[in-house]
Design a protein around this nucleic acid. Sequence first.
RNA 1: GCUGGGAUGGCGAAAUUGGUAGACGCACUAGCCUUAGGAGCUAGCGGGGCAACCCAUUGGAGGUUCGAGUCCUCUUCCCAGCACCA
Length: 944
Amino acid sequence: MAYDHKHIEKKWQEKWKKDEPYRSTEDTDKKKAYVLDMFPYPSGEGLHVGHPRGYIATDIYSRMKRMQGYSVLHPMGWDAFGLPAENYALKNKVHPRVAVEKNISNFKQQLAHIGFDYDWSREINTTDPAYYKWTQWIFLKMLEHKLAFQSNEPINWCPSCKTGLANEDLDGPVCERCGTTVEKKSLPQWVLKITDYADRMLADLDSLNWPEHIKEAQRNWIGRSEGAEISFPIVGSEETVTVFTTRPDTLYGATYLVLAPEHRFLTDKNYGFTKSLINADDVRAYVAQAATKTEIERGAEGKEKTGVKLEGVRALNPATKEEIPIYVADYVLGGYGTGAIMAVPAHDERDYEFAKKFNIPVRNVVEPVLVQTTGSAAFRENEPVQDSNGIIAIVKHWGDEKYMGLYWSKAEWGTLLTGGIDEGMAPEETALKEIREETGYTDARIVESFGTIHSKYYHAPKELNRFGHAPTFYIELKSDAREEVSPEELAKHELHWLTKEELKSFLTATSHLQALAFLDSHVYTGSGLLANSGDFSGKDSEQAKWDITQAVGGKRVTRYKLRDWVFSRQRYWGEPIPVIHCPKDGVVPVPYEDLPVVLPEVESYEPTGTGESPLATIESWVNTKCPKCGEPAKRETNTMPQWAGSSWYYLRFMDPHDATQLVSTKNEKYWAPVDVYVGGDHAVRHLIYARFWHKFLYDIGVVSTQEPFARLEFLGFILAEDGRKMSKRYGNVINPDDVIAEYGADAFRIYEMFMGPFENTTNWSTASIAGTSRFVERLWNLHETVTDAPVPELEPLLHRTIQKIGADIESFKFNTAVSQAMIFLNKIEEVGNIGKEQWRSFICILAPLAPHSTEELWELSGETSSIHLAPWPSFDEKIIAASHSEIVVQVNGKRRGSITLPADAVEEAALAAAKALPTIMAMLDGNEPKRVIYVPGRIINLVV
RNA sequence: GCUGGGAUGGCGAAAUUGGUAGACGCACUAGCCUUAGGAGCUAGCGGGGCAACCCAUUGGAGGUUCGAGUCCUCUUCCCAGCACCA
């Protein structure tokens, strides 16, 4: 009889609902496994086939863990506060609460068809007052620990969503939700000091078993950089401009300062130094213009630098004691560092670009040091070194876009024009002289000087290491005027005219390649030897960094890109921020015993757009009494952002019904941390917020682990068959309900896992699901071939299959687990029957993947309890090893045949067997192999 | 530009971590079965050969090794994140 998926799947889904075999318990006799999905946002669109992929993975994983004897926590819940739900409700003219309830029940029904093992008794919903009581509780604790504070700093404001946003809610310069360009707006805001945790969040990333790209994204977002703050006095004033730089070693090359348009010296009229400003109007106009420009405009204009010089105001470079100009320019960001920089055009691309435009001097202070590591001139460590001075010149052809290359045939060595500097002769003079002597060209002009390139190499003729110091020039020939060259010079090298590209492969010395690089980019941003830097000249730039900082009274500081978390939203659908504003006592937290502050039911919850929350209009709710003095006071009307509830929900699953505490110590100790966390996207926001809250809860003793999620598995998306995202807009959405109705939940589950590696993004293919559907059918049909006695032929492969499927599920390689199952199934069909115990083992390891059909087959085999509570089968490595009897015979590393030998056969036996093969005999042609490499159980390789 | 990850048949992919490249599945081709098939079965599916076998081959170029998809150097292209962060 064919497999009737509709009937069988329904039968078991109902039975599991009734019997609750998946109830989680804090069973201290067992090891625990906490397996968690990123809980969904119940949108109105319902699920498409991409959504359940992660849920199927955790389902399979948790089912296996349960069978392996673990106490499993695999819960599900709903993240339902926030803008999407509210916007959906507004559009459809229903209350968000009603919309959310409806969407949740729709989601739950869809999930039920797939046959998940969730413990629904632990379901949570972030919009439930019993839940968000604890979200508010955490906020109050943060307030208590001064991690939550009020601020009036301008924040990102989305004019379409009518609310303030955190940096993390932006997609570049636009609101990630609606795509509207955000504005800057000053509003009283609640802010969380996430930056206090930046260092710990960065350091602890190393301890996490997470995909590298996600850790990297977090490192990027935290954006730690070490540098120095250095103060530049303003000439004729008491004021100083403090700049942040990661390159204090280049201080001697700082030839101007730049203030961001947002710098307080420019925006705050109280700063006296502006009195001496001659062109105040121009400056003010530039600042005003920059303020109206959105970040996208600032960035878009081809990054062409703009700015205005502060005429009449000068700063003192504390190292050189030179007076340098100050500019305002929008390439400096107000929000990072101190909002002011020292500009070093010689060693920073952006400063160089600006300096060229405004004709500001460029002073080289760091010179590259190269070590020749390849070729005959490779530097020899631990051998004596001799200093030498010479020049390097890039010489351009008088007519073509070609450059001079010299090939030294004796040394097999391609160079630019070089030459030693004679005592008392200027490098410039030397360069021109060398061109004349070595090549005869007389009509040469120095166009540019690149400073000195240092290089360590081995000088073969003298059998000595050299540390060369070479001033480097770019020289153009004005004509082909040429005098005679002495025959001995001519004999030494051949002259070639080469394009830049050709020169790149022609040159052998790394120092010459560096000279060539200067032609394209005039800016050297690396480290090296300091020059033109007073007492520090000649020192290593990296080592001198902090000495220079100290010498000018600067201080070493660490800066982050990460901004504090703007935590207020001027919208209705969120957790009310639990504070009261009292005219007398100021900000007063709502007493813990008064939590939760329940979101009031209202008729109109439209955002006002004025920067006030819609809650502000509900007088009866807003007006309250101060908990401290009892006088009339007003409630805070802002709500929390969408990410609040999801920042700690994984803790509530451990103990979802405790009305007296967030999570009991007993349960937290048992379940924490989350062993495997599965989801896509959210690489930065949710994970960084949750880690922040978790570390805070650790600090106040609520949780016992430093990190919430020990292991993270990243989920690849499923695209539509046409390669685009599944969306109503494109009409390419595949609904899992339809797929399941046609092929069954088991085939659907297996297909989603078989599509490709779990972290890969793949296109959905309805045609391909036929393969896994066939697999379930064929598996079903096999139960008629079960015999009493075990089939010996199947033993090795069965054990290998148990081993591989277990290991693959453990490491989230579901695609190869499925493939192994198919291989074994093919083998059973080939053999024709399977022993009863073998069959039971096989369906047991398939149970996590195909929970319905295997449960039915289990029952058919005479069992009365659930297969999902059966023990996971074990395997015997010896039986697996015994099957590896075929070993490959190679000649010179190429496969030429195979022989069958016991795995523990000695080399002599293997060699004899190999030699006996006709092909091998022919290839050896009576000779003995020169060498034999024998890897028992694998290969034997004969070298002839 | 920076950082991280990739590139293997017509397609999704696998490869015991340096040891038979292309497992498994899809699509395709031929045949069988069937009133019919978007069902099932058998065989084939890099190139050559009736065959045993031979040759080529993991984006490209070099290298290390008895042996390289895997390690090293250079290079091209693709994806993702960040991006005037000093």
